[in-house]
Design a protein around this nucleic acid. Structure first.
Lengths: 373, 373
DNA sequence: TTGAAAGCGTTACCAA
DNA sequence: TTGGTAACGCTTTCAA
């Protein structure tokens, strides 16, 4: 006989009492075990029984309880995700194309490996996610002594983050090769004839920007050049544009600008234009940005991509590998950036307007104008 | 005596056998019940015992198993989130400021109500999330007969989406008032002197764009004006800019442009400039966009905000209210858009460059240039 | 004040 | 081939 436990509802008033495995079993005149095997395609069951169990389950609208399965399975296939940067400021990290692409790619990659991503609040305390059945976590751009990072490590939850966690048990890191990236940009600008290369960078302790500024200063020292650094103190396009204006109106007016601060490239061009500077004739421009508008700007803007997709993939892969193998061995990887050279940083490049005029030549036939009513 | 069940490891090789409640109980010489009460602050325990239990738990590094608590509690406080638009195209929905702000706001609002968001893949089949213990789901901009929407409804998982789910049991909808939005924009442009208002819209079946185009055509009919519609067929800034160029080179050249397609506003200005059109003197411009660069463009661009934050808040609130009350009663809400009028749509507005020249006057002292090395 | 035992809903082992 | 029973780890009722 199958047991018939009396149901004692507790908690939220359940509108419809959920159909459980026992309910299906009772209705089908089978045992829980048999029905479970039938639905999961496991065990050795006669086709007739299997089909009957399935039919009854379908008829009753049975849905296995995910939480119960999770408890049995011992893992939830859930990865927590948080971004450490800009803990306070207005406008979340989602305003940055770098972070949106990173977030999107992490979610996609995790999903491909069978894990779903749980969005955690920036700057939250470890207690808030203690009730979530997370198998692992990813913290992008952690703050110094990030409470989230420390919390996950203390909870022995495998963690993927940046180089600041290097070597700690159960952690994995991915970082961008800032040194190489900066050198590539500066060497490129110098080869194009730039002699006074200014940099606009955000005033954050984020590892990439710190490392990038260090690399810039080293490069300047090697070249015997004067570092020209302007800091943008708050996130957002407004402050970034102001920083550009300040940078370009310096006594020793630069002949090239390397925007490390993430800003909308057309806006940077606007700023230069307002100051009477023609890009690339008077000013070479390179923007560290993932903004797709760079390619369509006038002139198209050279960008340094921090390759958020690669960072995401590597971070997830290291984490998943450790998860599957059960290893606590820390691992890490360095990702190469990508310099996409466009007109804005090529001495002798076409001035603004050129590309557009050409484009107007091959007007497409897709135009649809509704007829007069 | 406390039971001492032999641990039989199964599944992934656990590097460190997790500390369970019984382990703490045994070590402290107490029962599971007592330790549980001590840690949760429930029951009536002597301060001494409570402290001892806590001390032992701390010493052993005990972490309650979230899944087990969830099974008891009957809910996971997890909300699934997916976006239906652009199921195939390259570049995810995360490329759009509207969706990033929506996503960010939904996550924040949900968290504030005690729910965490689980990112689901766009266009996934219902099987893929069947193992996730979701209490509810949100599908932004669902496709027609979206499999995700149908799956959630079939699984009796409370759902928040757009108006297409209106009236179905356990569903909630939030939509933007497209009709009112379009009328406000067109009336504004007409009041500024526009007579031939062109529209560029994406070629998607998304409810907002469909409704907006309908409203535009109705308005034109009322005014006895000719609808001038150009469709941008693919997502992204490139196709949007091309559509703008097509729209502005029409035989009956428009004197105002209403960009429904989400594009980077400075890029739209660029396109107009390349065609020899000065904004706002020759062309009034309004962009439906959440892009913050609109305010900093030259001239600043008037935007129609679809208020993703309001949409997010309302959607989550309706869902949470239903979750807490256990009601299956469908609910819904209409959100008002917001027209942010700037120079680009004001006849007689300041030409490009003006704002910047003023700004250069009050140069700030924040500039930091490193001294020569 | 403390603790034994009964669930929560599922899957896996092993006996019938 | 099928089914009883014992976990998974926790909270809670109820009896001592």
């Amino acid at each position: 006989m199958t047991e018939t436990p009396p149901r004692r509802d507790h908690g939220v008033p359940a509108a419809v009492p959920r159909v459980r495995l026992v309910d299906v079993a009772r209705e089908a005149g089978l045992s829980k075990t048999t029905v479970s095997a039938a639905l999961n395609g496991t065990g050795r069951l006669s086709p007739a029984v299997r089909e009957r169990a399935r039919e009854v389950a379908r008829r009753l609208g049975y849905r296995p309880n995910p939480t119960a399965r999770l408890l049995r399975a011992g893992h939830a296939r859930l990865i927590g995700y948080a971004v450490g940067e800009y803990p306070t400021g207005p406008g979340s990290y989602m305003d940055s194309p770098y972070f949106t692409q990173l977030t999107s790619a992490i979610a996609t990659t995790a999903l491909r490996h069978g894990y779903a991503l749980v969005l955690l609040p920036t700057g939250s305390s470890p207690d808030e996610w203690a009730d979530l059945p997370l198998d692992a976590a990813i913290v992008a751009d952690p703050l110094a002594d990030d409470p989230l990072v420390e919390g996950f490590i203390a909870a022995r939850i495998p963690l993927s983050s940046d180089r600041s966690v290097e070597g700690r048990s159960g952690t994995h890191w991915v970082d961008v090769d800032a040194e190489a990236a900066v050198r590539e940009v500066l060497d490129h600008l110098r080869a194009q004839g730039a002699r006074r290369i200014a940099v606009v960078a955000p005033d954050t302790p984020t590892s990439f920007y710190t490392a990038a500024l260090d690399a810039y200063r080293r490069w300047c020292a090697e070249q015997g050049a004067t570092p020209l650094v302007t800091l943008s103190t708050r996130p957002g396009n407004g402050p970034a544009v102001e920083a550009v204006e300040r940078s370009l109106t310096t006594p020793d007016r630069p002949d090239a600008l390397f925007m490390l601060t993430e800003a909308n490239p057309p806006l940077v061009l606007d700023a230069a234009r307002r100051l009477g500077l023609s890009v690339p004739a008077d000013l070479l421009l390179v923007c560290a940005s993932e903004d797709t508008s760079a390619a369509h700007a006038d002139p198209p803007v050279t960008t340094l991509s921090l390759q958020p997709v690669s960072v995401a993939e590597k971070g997830v892969e290291l984490l998943v590998a450790a998860l599957e193998s059960g290893s606590l061995e820390p691992t890490g990887a360095l990702v190469r950036t990508r310099l996409e050279i466009r007109t804005s940083s090529e001495r002798g490049g076409e001035p603004a307007g050129g590309a557009a005029l050409r484009r107007r030549g091959r007007q497409e036939a897709e135009y649809t104008s509704a007829p007069p009513t």
